[in-house]
Nucleic acid binder design. Structure first.
Lengths: 254, 254
DNA sequence: TGCGGAAATATCATATTATGATACGATAGA
DNA sequence: TCTATCGTATCATAATATGATATTTCCGCA
């Protein structure tokens, strides 16, 4: 019944339970049994049992009046466990704090995960959209300055393959979705050592990112700074933000 | 085999999978199959199957060389989903950002979860210990200024019951673990409207918290500020931090 | 380089356990 | 008050998780 594998090493019931957990996202913040069944494609009875189990185990809160399920605090504890397991975060955090204080602007730690960038740590300094102020958001790598900074450190061939095939998605009306343009941007990023994008995730936002390179010169993460185009033109960004950003990225590199 | 319930609405395999996930914490950041079996108390074969399933489903990363499992980025995406599901966070975030900028000090949003306080949002402004810079940490409510601020809004009877029975744990050598002292502290908190603690989570740290009250006057969350005793004495805290903190907590209240 | 121990991986017969159809009960809207 | 919808409970069936064991791979040590 479960597609992934009819393998004996695969526990279908667990996989189905995870499907239930994954049904919750930014546009599905609380779900009834029926809605869960629809989203997960699971049987109504199965959802009933799985959701009940997750509730008993403390993974889902249940509104006693509406009977709807919501993510519990356990979801945050999982993030906490993640943070301890990611060696980059512990290393980067003090330096990111210092950077955000120095710049007075929002600073992020971004990591590549598949074809996406995930914002692992966020230090918001100015009022911004909600999605940009909490960690864990994933966005297509090709569309973001952090993703471009990371990709620019890849060998030419891999870089080209990524630009050709990776996922693209217009987040704002001005998000770049033309792969030829992205090729150019990443070439530029590779030659000057930092990425600079406009209006990609939010309108009027400027993203600037420097890769955190490993010993082999290759990067899987980046330090990212997000500022308003109202207050910052490219010249001032280059002179007043870039040097500190670059220093921080270098300091984090192992 | 699973203690919780031999109920037909309880999916044991899912519960066991969650046991595997919960095996990871700040002191267990990556685990081998054997270690997982030991921690979870599950059969070696069961752990093999469950961990493999979690890996295939993207919940656990597997180091190809050490064969050990680690939390994956999916754990952060779950936090992201949580943030959208918690109405308080969206409401509080812009105000917390404003507060942290105004004070130039670390600001937290804390919620009560069972007998513990969980730090939901953290805006670190100064270099601090790692545990205090990432969200999702849980600490006994009785030991923290945020917990005391929340408890102080409870009816007398519930307050007393909590002080008598809730979990206590010495995080630092100077953490208050005497329940009589805590009674006094919470009484004081209730009468003056804010909580102030010293050396509870970190040595030389002063915690100051204001409850976020609901329409009935009762609170389940608090705004919390953490400063160094080196730089701040109680008088200055009261005059330069407290008013802004109180305003912010009030502004967040529904 | 080769040996030995430990840990990870693969296999398999068994019955435990998840399944999903169905029936019942509660809640909300007409 | 009635009716439709959604959540809850029950049960026979077989699918699926189980855990003992065998095999392979990996790693430290001589």
């Amino acid at each position: 019944m479960t597609q992934p594998k009819q393998n004996t090493l695969f526990v279908g019931a667990l996989a189905k339970g995870l499907r239930v957990l994954r049904a919750f996202d930014e546009s599905h913040t609380e779900l009834s049994l029926g809605a869960l069944a629809e989203i997960t494609g699971l049987d109504k009875s199965a959802v009933q049992r799985l959701a009940n189990t997750l509730h008993v185990e403390g993974m889902l809160d249940k509104d006693p009046v509406t009977r709807r399920y919501r993510p519990s605090h356990a979801w945050l504890r999982m993030a906490y466990a993640y943070y301890w397991s990611d060696p980059l975060v512990a290393h980067a955090m003090p330096k990111l704090i210092e950077l955000s204080q120095r710049l007075g602007e929002t600073v992020n730690l971004a990591e590549l995960t598949g074809q996406h960038i995930i914002y692992v740590a966020r230090l918001p300094c100015t009022r911004t959209v909600f999605a940009a102020s909490v960690p864990g958001r994933t966005v297509p790598a090709l569309c973001t300055s952090a993703g471009q900074a990371v990709l620019a450190t890849f060998p030419k061939a891999e870089r080209a393959a990524a630009i050709d095939h990776w996922h693209l998605e217009a987040v704002t009306p001005r998000t770049t979705t033309d792969r030829a343009t992205i090729t150019q941007q990443i070439d530029t990023t590779a030659s000057r050592g930092y990425a600079l994008t406009h209006d990609q995730m939010i309108l009027n936002e400027v993203g600037i990112a420097c890769a955190i390179r490993g010993p082999d010169g290759r990067a899987w993460s980046a330090v990212h700074c997000s500022v308003s185009a109202h207050h910052w033109d490219d010249v001032r960004i280059r002179s007043e933000i870039l040097p500190w950003l670059q220093d921080t990225a270098n300091a984090i590199s192992p």
